[in-house]
Design a protein around this nucleic acid. Structure first.
Lengths: 337, 337
DNA sequence: GGTGTTTTTGGGAACGTTCCCAAACAATGG
DNA sequence: CCATTGTTTGGGAACGTTCCCAAAAACACC
């Protein structure tokens, strides 16, 4: 069914030398005569020899692969993070095994098992919105496989984490709304199980406090990130006796949905209601008015997370530290506010 | 540096049986007594045994992995295709090794080598806009590793390909513009090296022919998909003595750029100029007016391509056929036309 | 030409599985 | 109770590398 692939033994036999010598040439070991080196290299090239990583992996007990588990692929956020991580990883000679949990806890568990089976040398994780139990991830720690969280991190585990300053980002966003004269700022937040949701909510509240604005619980909604429900929440807000004059959402897709719905209702953005999102996703400059949002350094998140992971892979477990890297956000003020 | 991982030999020793028996239990072989089966299963569970795919892969000479090489990750098109492919692959117990060529031929070559090194069981490829030489991909054929192209296919190789009906999609788009009264329809096309560009251009021309409209070479531009240059091309078109009253672009991001530029120039869309894109990318419903576009079944492309690949993997090379699957497109008429 | 040193080479174990073959054991039937 | 069949088990090769150790070859020096 499968063609025979050339091995170092084939090369050794044809040249009447031992496989050890061929291996030495191919791995660049110094102790080998110029004559045999050339002969091996020449024949390897002629035969189109390709080293077999399956054997090398088993021999070295390393897969030379890092795993990445992300909740979704639809918004541009995670693909961008993956791009950054992949850059750093392949630079260092590592492959990347990507899996999506589709925001499902069970899939995340299954994916973790696949990573374990495949003996990834380390794993990068961003949790699903459902994940409450972390046993499937603690296995990695127990087995001595480094793990790094990014974006949606796990407070329960003492491992490196890479996040953006969600608190400050939200704070700046809301402060901006206040300073431009908004009096009733609503917040459509994410599920409180997610660290990011909590932090952004805190930033929202503290900005209001700083400027002595009342915190109206009726203006704070937390939803499950299911975009189809956005309409319902917005309708609820607009139907309030005192509707909001500004909306700060947990992310950009949510803001898009909200804007589309509000525009359909005839509301003027930003005159009647200002909107600010979070992430600077693809699309935020396409919608009209262009969305004011808190930009996250997606690419950098991936790079930093991958680097932290590689650092752990290449050091003794005793030296591992639960580094907590907080990257800066940037408020991009555009037409929607 | 690395913790000892439990192997079947550990289990065998503790139970005073042979590794063969343990292996039989774990692989579900029938010939093993109920008593030993239970004992093995129990201990494996207690010790948190995890099968070592590195060993299994070497033993079976299969990586249980399929490779996917895509040109980019920025637009939503390829991530969506990958989602579809991944679904089918993991259903069948295969992992997915993803790599981006970043539209660079050299990176594509390097990625192909990595796939080869890692002995992927098959590979899914969408070419870069630069690729003119296919030697790095023909190696797969020579080595008996199945390969399937999708979207950006290679005319030189007799292997399965999955595309959408670019010709018909373009035809329908242009026909729609003609039927809505447009007289000068410009086409901002992709590099002619890409199969898709050629097909879409053909559809464009044939639609004009069918309705006895002149084909003005001055209205047909082919660019290298570098979004930053879109402005220049559009400016050129608008400055013509007889500027176009409609624009059909090779893809949606190009249409977005064009629309943004034209709106900034004060042009009314669709009154003064209609715009039609291709792909129904994320963002086409965000921009205003919403973009009329030819939708591609991204998810399905991935599924079909992966399935064709798996079919080849699980059959003898002598049975491989260069199946050419053409999926249907759908014209989505929206506000921009 | 013998001794010591360095360079180059070969042999074999190891990585953790699966799979084939033969051996041991249990069960069945006359 | 022995022969026959069937079930359960163990031993060892194989997958393609790397790496350690020892042997062989080449070289230098007195």
């Amino acid at each position: 069914m499968k063609k025979h692939q050339i091995t170092i033994i084939d090369i050794a036999r044809q040249l009447n030398i031992s496989k050890s010598t061929v291996s030495r040439v191919l791995t660049g070991h110094p102790n080998v005569s110029e004559k045999t080196r050339e002969a091996v290299l020449k024949l390897a090239n002629e035969l189109d020899y390709q080293r077999n990583m399956l054997a090398i992996n088993l021999m070295s007990s390393q897969s030379h692969t890092i795993g990445i588990i992300v909740p979704e692929f639809v918004t541009s956020f995670f693909p961008m993070v993956i791009m950054g991580a992949q850059e750093v990883a392949s630079q260092a000679g590592y492959n990347v095994l990507i899996s999506q949990s589709n925001e499902s806890y069970e899939t995340e568990v299954a994916n973790a098992k696949v990573m374990l089976d495949n003996r990834v040398d380390g794993v990068l994780v961003s949790l699903t919105r459902e994940t409450r139990n972390y046993d499937h991830l603690k296995v990695f720690q127990r087995k001595g496989i480094p793990i790094v969280f990014f974006n949606r991190v796990c407070d329960d585990m003492q491992v490196p984490k890479v996040v953006v300053d969600d608190y400050e980002g939200a704070f700046k966003a809301v402060e901006h709304l206040i300073l431009t004269g908004r009096k009733r700022i609503a917040h459509l937040g994410g599920p409180t199980s997610l660290h990011v949701s909590k932090k952004r909510l805190e930033g929202y509240k503290d900005a209001l406090r700083k400027y002595n604005q009342p915190i109206d619980p009726g203006l704070i909604l937390d939803y499950d990130l299911n975009l189809e429900k956005v309409k319902i929440y917005i309708k609820h807000l607009l139907d309030l006796p005192e509707p909001p004059d500004a909306l700060f959402t947990i992310n950009d897709p949510t803001a898009f949905e909200a804007m589309i719905f509000m525009k359909a209702k005839g509301l003027k953005i930003p005159e009647e209601i200002a909107v600010v999102g979070f992430s600077n996703n693809y699309g935020s400059t396409l919608i009209e008015p262009r969305l004011t949002t808190v930009a996250q350094p997606t690419h950098q998140i991936g790079q930093v997370a991958a680097q932290l992971l590689l650092d752990q892979i290449n050091s003794d477990a005793s030296e591992w530290k639960p580094i907590y890297r907080v990257l800066k956000t940037e408020l991009l003020v555009r037409g929607s506010s």
